[in-house]
Amino acid sequence: MSRQVIFNILRYNPQLPNVTPHLQRYLLEAADGMTLFIALNEIREHQDATLQFDFVCRAGICGSCAMLINGRPRLACRTLVADLPDENTLAPLPFFELIGDLSVNTGKWMRGMSERLSVWLHAQEMEVDTRRIEERMDAETAEAVYELDRCVECGCCVAACGTARMRPDFVGAVGLGKIARFRADPRDMREDADFYELIGDDTGVFGCMSLLACHDVCPKTLPLQTQIAFLRRKMAAQTIKSAGKKTSLR
């Protein structure tokens, strides 16, 4: 006999404020190779068309479907029902603005973070002659940049973050990871003094309490632990440097 799986899903639609948040129970027959993408669509198509959730690529590439699966932030599309217990709780990622049920507005937060930290390449020359052979870069450097560039902005790291819970203005591991990415990029002209302006306080790298759940939950297995530690060292050094400068100026 096939296995029956229970999903208790946290339901709340801010558009309908009269309905209080509640857990709703759905029963589903597990199938071979069934992911939460397949399971949730089955529930929506056969049991409850009002259920809200987000999927786009359903292949673990786009980062749309992060949610709390039994309390842990994960990508739902990459979660196999076969690996789950018989009874499960699904909830939206905390921290982000709730759109409804399992859907949260990571897009709006990520854009705000990107603007605030200006996470784009600050090259020396804005306009390049694209007819000409490109600037050179070592293969190892390029790979190291790509490694950090793999972030999909799913929000798992922020949802799992102890600091973010207390400081809504914390840039999160995603923001710090992006700074690390551009810092590692030889094409970016910014120096530590510039990065310090962006993340050299408690909303940035000094807000991190090194609980590092971000590192544990990152679905792209980004090296967040080492990158944050490294950034903190560099930024701390920068603190001393700029403090020195100020003193000598005086």
Partner: peptide, 19 residues
Amino acid sequence: APKAVRELAAWGMPWSRIT
């Protein structure tokens, strides 16, 4: 197409490189 690749490189695209 080559101009597009080079423009992206100048915009920060981490293209894999030759050793």
